[in-house]
């Protein structure tokens, strides 16, 4: 992906669309922290905003599609549905809050990423 494309879809100006895309990507991406954190770091370096990155990591944490069958199997339908419903707004809300409250920190974070 080119820098312009990342900046357009996921950068500071991408607003709710960027946060929504990040939530979907975070929910779908499989693998442990050694897989998604390097991807997140690369996206940030390429121009993704702080809010987009927080939404991505939060969606991976609370809406992970690959973890759902195991969770459903071990904890049952009622608890899984209750957890999904109550955490449903966390990824976009957190992304929006992070961008609004700390969005300007993104340059300092970007500079310190070592890939």
């Amino acid at each position: 992906m080119t820098q312009e494309k990342v900046a357009y879809w996921l950068g500071e100006g991408s607003g709710w669309r960027g946060i929504f895309l990040a939530c979907v990507a975070g929910a779908l991406i499989p693998g442990g922290p050694y897989v998604y954190y390097p991807i997140a770091a690369a996206l940030l370096r390429a121009g993704a905003s702080l809010g987009v990155l927080v939404a991505f990591v939060s969606a991976k944490n609370v809406w992970p599609v690959v973890r759902l069958p195991l969770e459903f199997a071990l904890l049952g339908p009622r608890l899984t549905v209750a957890r999904l419903l109550t955490t449903f707004l966390i990824p976009p809300l957190l992304g929006f809050l992070a961008q609004a409250l700390a969005g300007r920190q993104v340059e300092a974070i970007r500079e310190n990423i070592k890939l």
Partner: peptide
């Protein structure tokens, strides 16, 4: 893991905002 790949500053921001949830 997060601090190792993205840095402490990011982890502190995400963690603090998420804490009450």
């Amino acid at each position: 893991w997060e601090a190792r790949f993205i840095g402490w500053r990011f982890t502190v921001i995400r963690w603090t905002l998420l804490l009450p949830f």
